[in-house]
């Protein structure tokens, strides 16, 4: 048993390929058997992944899901930022520039609308929960943009660490929601063509949420959504601690 364990740990990434492969086989089986393919196999795989992360987090008390279980540490490498970004870029293979140009303007616009909308929702919610100072309001609002924009903004403004934690959590909840809910609402919101995928990526913005949500909906749409989503966090980091903070401070102090 010890020998098996040391082999699995020593070959972390390779073990992750095997485990994820088994999980995907199981998911497609469940998709065919229980739902007659109505629920996409990859949607089920992602939901099982999220469930496993919840289960592992409760056991280990860590923040990286199953990657905190020694035996499955390779999953953290496989699903980490480096391979994720590498795979996202590869999905652009075969995309036509013309398709991108068609929705270019609206796609760009959707990034700014998306950042502003999430920020305003975060600020209003924080205000309803009793926060009154501009720094805390801005930090929580930025967390509703993405879980990267939140702490970047909080650090820039010198926010309280409890507020920072709350801000990151808001972003994580948003990302998990987008991952889990997108396949269910896709048809309702017309998410079935490159243009709407670009708008979707721009409005949602969370790279992992959009990446997971579109993968479970229609893999062909992934590059279009991912392209706009990757500019969203940058736009949020640009706007939240500067323009949005100054506007908010003017409103709060008035």
């Amino acid at each position: 048993m010890n020998a098996l364990q040391s082999v699995v740990v020593a070959n972390g990434l390779v073990s992750a390929f095997a485990v994820v492969g088994l999980l995907v086989v199981l998911s497609y089986y469940l998709s065919a058997r229980l739902t007659h393919n109505r629920i996409h196999g990859s949607a089920i795989a992602i939901l099982i992944g999220l469930g496993a992360a919840w289960w592992a987090g409760n056991i280990t008390g860590g923040s990286r899901g199953v990657a905190d279980l020694g035996l499955l540490a390779g999953i953290g490498v496989m699903g980490g930022g480096m391979l994720r970004d590498f795979a996202i870029v590869s999905t652009a293979f075969g995309v036509k520039l013309g398709e991108l140009r068609k929705a270019g303007l609206v796609g760009t616009l959707s990034i700014f609308i998306g950042v502003a909308l999430s920020f305003v929702v975060g600020v209003i919610t924080a205000a309803l929960f009793g926060y009154r100072d501009a720094v805390s309001l801005t930090t929580i609002g930025a967390g509703a943009v993405t879980y990267i924009v939140g702490p970047v903004t909080g650090a820039a403004l010198g926010a309280d660490s409890a507020v920072m934690a709350l801000s990151v959590t808001t972003g994580v909840v948003k990302s998990v929601l987008v991952m889990a809910c997108t396949p269910w609402v896709a048809r309702l919101i017309g998410l079935d063509n490159p243009a709407s995928a670009m708008v979707f990526g721009g409005l949602m913005g969370t790279t992992s949420g959009v990446a997971g949500g579109l993968a479970a909906t229609d893999p062909k749409l992934v590059p279009y959504g991912a392209l706009t989503a990757t500019f969203y966090t940058g736009a949020g980091c640009l706007l939240c601690p500067s323009l949005f903070y100054f506007l908010l401070r003017a409103i709060v102090e008035a």
């Binding site: 994820v20 995907v24 795989a45 992944g49 999220l50 899901g65 994580v172 991952m179 997971g212």
Partner: peptide, 16 residues
């Protein structure tokens, strides 16, 4: 891409 996204989902801080 999809298997990598599954691994990514499994290493999220879902408890938080």
């Amino acid at each position: 891409y999809i298997p990598i996204v599954v691994a990514m989902a499994a290493s999220q801080n879902v408890v938080a």
